[in-house]
Amino acid sequence: MSGKITVLLLDDEAIVGRRLKPALEKIGCTVEVFEDPRRALARLAEQTFHIVVTDIRMDDIDGLQVLEQVKKTSPATRVIMITGYAMMALAREAMELGAFDFIAKPFTPDDLRAVVARAAESLGLAVTSSTSE
């Protein structure tokens, strides 16, 4: 264990945060969930997270703006994009802007845990096995 991995999860769908918070906590992450991108950005300004998981398509501010903001303030933070459906153009744009990876809806909790694990690894952190509990 090399300390808790901090994750900020941003999706305007409430259920996404409700289900993924426990799912990620199981692998040793500390998860903060946001539905409103403005409040998420405010929180990101206060604190640096290891990993940010954000939906690309939201009403006011989209995931790409969040990505840019995060990359500006803490370049080390790994940003994982959730895309509505395979919008390759947007995904490619996100990768060019420095996203760590993207994951397309619908996905399973394990899909996301795998990407998060790889992101943690790239930071020199390790996740705990979800089945260890």
Binding site: E13, I15, V16, R19, L20, A23, G84, Y85, A104, K105, P106, F107, T108, P109
Partner: peptide, 10 residues
Amino acid sequence: NNPLNNISLT
């Protein structure tokens, strides 16, 4: 995809 994702995750 949004409700589908919600169903799948849940």
